[in-house]
Each structure stands twice: as C-alpha cells, then as structure tokens.
Design a protein around this nucleic acid. Structure first.
Lengths: 131, 131
DNA sequence: CAATTGATGTAATGTCATAACATATAATGC
DNA sequence: GCATTATATGTTATGACATTACATCAATTG
C-alpha cells in the first residue's frame, strides 16, 4: 500500500494515518523530529506528493491535512468533509447529486473546474450530546 | 446600506467593494495606509464584523476576502464560489439541491452544521479562451 | 456620573508556507 | 562504465496570514 513512497513520504503518511484527526504540517514535523526531519519544507514536499497521489487530503478551512479515509479508491473526485469543531474528528463522504449539480453549474457557466472543496464545520452527534 | 458601520468597517467594506476580486487582509491594510490604518488587527477586526453581518465572505482556499455579491439578501445560507485561477475573479452562486443534499447528510449523521464552505477552483471561460 | 460595553491603537508573537541554493541518489541512454 | 537527466533531500532564510495581550477612548446605560 505505502509501497513506492520515499522515506519522507512514508514518515508523513504514517503520521497522518496514525493520527486521530487532521494535523498541521508543523505538527507533523514535530512528531517526526526523532526520525530526523528538521525543516517544514521536508514535510510540505512529502505532503505535495501524497496529495497528488490522493492518499492525503488538505482541509482548507483548517490549514491542515488528513489521511484519506478510502485509500484504495483514490480519485473519488469531489469529496466532502464534515469537520467537528468540538472533537476535531473529520468525516469524509461524497454525493453524486452534489457533484452533478456543481458540474452542471460549471458547464453552463463555461467554468473548467480543477478542484472543488466542500467542508462543513459544526458539531458531531457525540459532541452535541456532551454540551 | 453601509449605514451603521464604524469608521474602520466602512474603510474595509469600501476597499472590498471597489476591488476587482478577492483581497487578503494585508492587501486591504496596504490600501488603507493613507487612511490611517497601521496594524493587521485593525483590518481583521473590521472583517470579523463584516463577516458576521454577511457583507463579506471569506474564501478559505485563498485566505482572502470578497464583498458579498448579493448584499441585500444576506443570510442566503450556503453560498458556493467559483474562483478563476487565471484572472482571480470570483462568481458567487447558490443551489438549493446542493444545500438539501448536504443538509440531508448532516441530519442523517447527527451533525449540526454551523458553516459550510464550497469553493470550486479552475478557469473561467474567458481564461480558457485565452490559453 | 460611575459602570459597562464596544471600538480603537500598538507591539509583539504565533502559525502556515515557499524561495533559493546546495547536495545526494536513482534511473536512463550511449 | 559513465555522462546525463530527473527526482529526492537537506538547510537557511524569508514571506504570508492571523492572533494575543495590553492600553486607551467613546458611547450607552442605570
């Protein structure tokens, strides 16, 4: 699975996979100090590749990164995220109807979509119960 | 319209309204140096209020801000943005079906949505033609 | 007119991300 | 093999975005 990754890519991937929720690049860096990583760029370069491969997602509203929840079917196209502001957990889902509607808007407006971000911030059931 | 805004809020609002596209907080600051603004916080505080009032939107994928395109019907709930990477222009639209689908997901997953971000990055028709 | 509330000003700091340059390692073609 | 190219790595410095902490000022209210 993490077969043809380089050393740094592997380190970053494992860190994200083992995390409870999204991590910032600098948090990843901190967790990899003992493995020899010293500069932000080492993490960002690994993240860039992992993003390209679809193994990792970037959460724009958090400036943070998560391991893809469906690592086998990368290239799902149009993934939405529900991000709990209480516990930080992230749910990943996709919806064909939403995709269809946004594609439709783009087509009718001659807009060539390259990447679409859908992020819902709020509170998950567990956190609503506790509050 | 910009009636009950404070001095700084008014300055920031006018800057965004007069801009071609989204502006970063620091760009806004630069454009308001002559009006006496000196620190980022002055801009961020004004932006916070304008965001609350629905007069301004934050584009998460750009870390930038735009004046609302429909300033009279604030509180549209669930606005989507198409952001052209070529010319920087932003189109604002909403889609009830998308809203319905995302609301449906949230309800069925006991997720209490507070704010939803939808941003499509790509190239607008004009920019596709030119390239 | 004291007390509260909200806006403002300023400095310092924190957080996220990339540019520029040097070096190393691996794969390819001759 | 060996030069060539491409990719990965390491390091320093810097740029870009955002907030904390503290002081002051003005308007409102009881």
């Amino acid at each position: 699975m993490t077969a043809d990754l380089t050393r740094n890519q592997n380190l970053v991937m494992k860190t994200l996979s083992g995390a409870e929720g999204p991590l910032s690049a600098y948090t990843i860096l901190d967790r990899l100090r003992d493995d020899g990583l010293r500069a932000p760029l080492q993490v960002y370069r690994a993240l860039d590749k992992l993003l390209e491969m679809g193994l990792v997602h970037r959460l724009e509203s958090l400036n943070a990164f998560v391991a893809c929840a469906h690592p086998h079917c990368h290239e799902q196209e149009l993934i939405a995220f529900a991000i709990c502001d209480g516990c930080g957990k992230v749910e990943e889902f996709s919806d064909d109807v939403v995709k269809e509607r946004l594609d439709g808007w783009a087509t009718s407006h001659r807009f060539r979509a390259a990447k679409t971000t859908i992020e819902i911030r709020g509170d998950c059931g567990g956190c609503t119960d506790r509050s």
